[in-house]
């Protein structure tokens, strides 16, 4: 039996301790892409400084990724780690939603 309290401890431990593995898919230098990169970097620096790795991929350069990564809408941010995997689309201007999507609780700050 796992106690509920323990489970939540584990989760928060994970979120606080582990490194976020992020991949951002963009399309060249489109307005949305530039905004998304800027917004995301700002959020990461503000909330999880030093605890993330961000890979920015230009889909135009690697078109085959579109199919293998199930890309439809861009810009797309995939949170590879920690689990569960999440997909965020848009220019990341809605900070609250980005944080929710990444599983970063604002209360801990």
């Amino acid at each position: 039996m796992i106690e509920p309290a323990k489970l939540s401890d584990l989760e928060s431990d994970d979120n606080n301790g582990k490194t976020y593995e992020l991949r951002l898919f963009v399309t060249g230098a489109s307005i949305n892409s530039i905004r998304a990169i800027a917004n995301l970097k700002h959020i990461c620096e503000s909330y999880i400084p030093g605890r993330y790795s961000l890979e920015i991929i230009d889909v135009y350069q690697q078109k085959d990724l579109a199919e293998s990564e199930q890309i439809i809408a861009l810009p797309l941010l995939i949170k590879k780690f920690p689990m569960p995997q999440r997909r965020l689309i848009g220019d990341m201007s809605d900070t609250a939603k980005v944080l929710k999507g990444l599983g970063i609780s604002t209360k801990s700050e």
Partner: peptide, 14 residues
Amino acid sequence: EETGEYDLDGLFIR
């Protein structure tokens, strides 16, 4: 999760 402006460029590229 939708976090703002986006387009379907991914679909176009694909």
